[in-house]
C-alpha cells in the first residue's frame, strides 16, 4: 500500500501547525481589540449571572465540621510597614476604619465600636481565581450597617476598599457595586474561625464578598470610599489585580 502520509510529514506538519497556532494565539492574545472581543464573554457572564440568579441569594454556608484545617493565606502575608507594625504591636486597638467619599456623614469606626455592633457569623467557602478553595468561619459587621450609619449618598455607585498593604509597590485596593455592598453576607470581618483575624489573612479587617473570587476580598482594610465612578481610582479598572494583571472586575466565575 502506498503511504499517503509519511511519519515525517505528519510530525513536521503537526509541529508547524502547532507552532503557527501558538504564535497566532499569542499575537491575538496581546491585541487589545481581540481582547475586547474575548472580553464580551466576561460581560455576558456578569449580565447573565446577575439576570438569571436571585440578586440577593446567599452563598452556601457550611457547618464547623466542613472548615479547612488550615485557611490558606495568599497575596500579602504581612503589610510590614512602620504604621502597620506599630498598630499590630498593640493588637490593632488603635485601628480606625474610615468611611470617606459620597457619604452624608463620613466617619471613622474604631475596632471597639465595630465589635460592639450587630455581628454576622458565616461559614463560607473562598474560591481563589487560581483554582483552590478554603472554608472558614468569618465574623464581622455587615457593610450595610456602616453605609446606613454614614448615610450613603444617592450619587454613590461603588464602594472602594483601600488597604494598608502594597504589592509590587502599589497599594492594594478593591471595589464592589452596591448590589454586593448591601448583600447580607457582605461583611467587614475581624474574626476567622473564632479567633482574631491572623495577620496573614488580613488583620485586623478584611472584606468578605461571598459569590465572588478571592482577589475581591480586600485584606488590611483601613478605608471604605464611596464613589460614583471607578475611573479615578488606581489605574481605573476597579482593583489592584484588575489594574496590574487585567483580571475581571466582576469575579463571579
Amino acid at each position: 500500500m502506498k503511504k499517503l502520509i509519511t511519519r515525517r510529514a505528519l510530525v513536521t506538519s503537526a509541529t508547524l501547525g502547532a507552532g503557527g497556532l501558538l504564535t497566532g494565539c499569542d499575537a491575538l492574545s496581546r491585541n487589545p481589540a481581540f481582547q475586547d472581543v474575548l472580553g464580551l464573554a466576561e460581560d455576558a457572564n456578569f449580565v447573565v449571572q446577575r439576570a438569571l440568579g436571585d440578586r440577593m441569594e446567599l452563598a452556601s454556608e457550611y457547618s464547623r465540621a466542613d472548615i479547612s484545617p488550615k485557611f490558606r493565606a495568599n497575596g500579602t502575608r504581612n503589610p510590614d510597614t512602620i504604621d502597620y507594625n506599630a498598630s499590630a504591636a498593640q493588637s490593632f486597638a488603635d485601628w480606625q476604619l474610615r468611611l470617606t467619599g459620597l457619604f452624608a456623614k463620613p466617619q471613622s469606626f474604631s475596632m471597639a465600636s465595630l465589635q460592639s455592633m450587630p455581628q454576622r457569623t458565616q461559614i463560607t467557602r473562598l474560591d481563589c481565581v487560581e483554582g483552590w478553595s478554603a472554608i472558614g468561619e468569618w465574623t464581622g459587621v455587615p457593610i450595610k450597617l456602616l453605609l446606613d450609619l454614614a448615610v450613603l449618598a444617592e450619587k454613590a455607585n461603588f464602594l472602594v476598599f483601600h488597604c494598608a498593604d502594597r504589592l509590587g509597590g502599589r497599594p492594594y485596593y478593591e471595589s464592589i457595586d452596591l448590589l454586593d455592598a448591601y448583600h447580607p453576607q457582605t461583611i467587614i470581618a475581624h474574626r476567622l474561625n473564632g479567633n482574631a483575624l491572623p495577620v496573614e489573612n488580613g488583620a485586623p479587617l478584611r472584606l468578605r464578598v461571598e459569590r465572588q473570587l478571592g482577589y475581591k476580598h480586600a485584606k488590611y482594610v483601613r478605608e471604605i470610599e464611596a464613589v460614583a465612578t471607578l475611573d479615578n481610582i488606581g489605574a481605573g479598572k476597579g482593583g489592584y489585580w484588575e489594574d496590574v494583571a487585567d483580571y475581571e472586575w466582576y469575579a463571579g466565575i
Binding site: 494565539c25 492574545s29 472581543v37 472580553g39 487560581e130
Partner: peptide, 24 residues
C-alpha cells in the same frame, strides 16, 4: 509547557478570557 497552553506565556487573566469566550 508553553506549547500546550494558550497563551504560550503565563497569563491567568488572558487564559480565562479565551476559556470563557470559547465556552460560550
Amino acid at each position: 509547557p508553553g506549547w500546550a497552553t494558550i497563551p504560550s506565556y503565563y497569563s491567568l487573566a488572558e487564559g480565562r478570557r479565551w476559556h470563557f469566550f470559547f465556552a460560550w
